[in-house]
Simulated assay, not measured.
Amino acid sequence: MGPKAAEDEVAVSRRAGEGLTLRAVLPNAITAAALCSGLTGIRFAIAGEWQAAVIAIILAGLLDGIDGRIARLLKAQSRFGAELDSLADSLSFGMAPAIILFLWTLEDLPRVGWFASLAFALCCALRLARFNARIDMDDQPHKSAGFLTGIPAPVGAGLAFLPFFLTMATDLDVFRDPLVNGIWVLVIAVLMISNVATLSWASIRPRRHIRLEIIAAAGLLFAALLLEPWWTLSALSMIYLLTLPFGALRYRKIRLQRAAR
């Protein structure tokens, strides 16, 4: 682990009481930057700068995706980093999106909207606590099969912003309806703490003969994010939602095969 082992990776144990090494400064600095980016999104939301607020959360997600990998590349895993990363994730992908969404639309239904925001932030914290509690456990059926349990926190934050993406892309206020957004946020909150098996990067193994096509698709995706960011983010969110039943069915098949053996 370090800053935190990804949910589809095996944690590396370290000696108890081992301090923070100098080479661990870089990955933990990236984690701190992700934390600051997520919290700065709240500042933008208070000022009504909605696009900047959501971009700050997306930037926090990108930083969160590289800090652990840099730590493993530098062999700078630490328990300090694991705890810092979980704290940063809870604030950047739980509390910050909840507040941004409340200020953007949910405050039009103060009681119901605040309840939905609280549920989202709470479920994000519970998910991270569950992951930390299981990080050293050997018996993890989903992880051993290359799957995750529920929706990861950064992905949950991105999906919660799907109505915002559609509003920015279409200029239609129908996607800003507070009741619809409140229900949507509750659904994503439940999916984060659910036991549904979801696909992980470890389970995606493209065949050799299509790797060039994947590289080309990645380049075109980056260009699409530059040209039409909100439509592209909306499409990515919808594609991920479509993978949920596929992941559940695929895991069920693997589980039945294991039971047969």
Results as ranks from 00 to 15, higher is better:
7 E>M: 13
9 E>A: 11
12 V>E: 15
15 R>K: 15
19 G>R: 15
29 A>F: 13
32 A>W: 00
34 A>N: 11
35 L>G: 05
36 C>M: 15
39 L>I: 09
40 T>V: 04
40 T>Y: 12
46 I>Y: 05
46 I>R: 02
48 G>L: 04
51 Q>F: 02
53 A>M: 03
56 A>Y: 06
57 I>F: 04
57 I>G: 04
60 A>K: 03
66 I>R: 04
70 I>R: 02
71 A>R: 08
75 K>N: 15
81 G>W: 06
81 G>Q: 11
81 G>S: 08
89 D>S: 12
93 F>L: 13
97 P>L: 04
102 F>R: 02
107 E>D: 02
113 G>I: 14
123 C>R: 09
130 R>F: 11
130 R>Q: 10
134 R>F: 01
137 M>V: 06
139 D>C: 04
144 S>R: 14
145 A>Y: 02
148 L>F: 14
152 P>H: 00
154 P>M: 04
155 V>R: 00
155 V>Y: 02
155 V>P: 01
155 V>M: 12
156 G>D: 03
159 L>S: 00
161 F>S: 10
167 T>D: 10
169 A>F: 00
172 L>K: 11
176 R>G: 03
176 R>E: 05
179 L>W: 13
183 I>N: 11
185 V>L: 15
186 L>W: 07
191 L>T: 10
191 L>W: 14
192 M>C: 08
195 N>H: 15
196 V>P: 07
197 A>Q: 07
207 R>N: 13
209 H>T: 13
210 I>V: 15
211 R>V: 13
211 R>F: 05
215 I>N: 04
224 A>H: 01
228 E>H: 09
238 M>G: 00
242 L>D: 06
248 A>W: 14
249 L>V: 03
250 R>N: 14
251 Y>V: 10
257 Q>T: 13
257 Q>F: 05
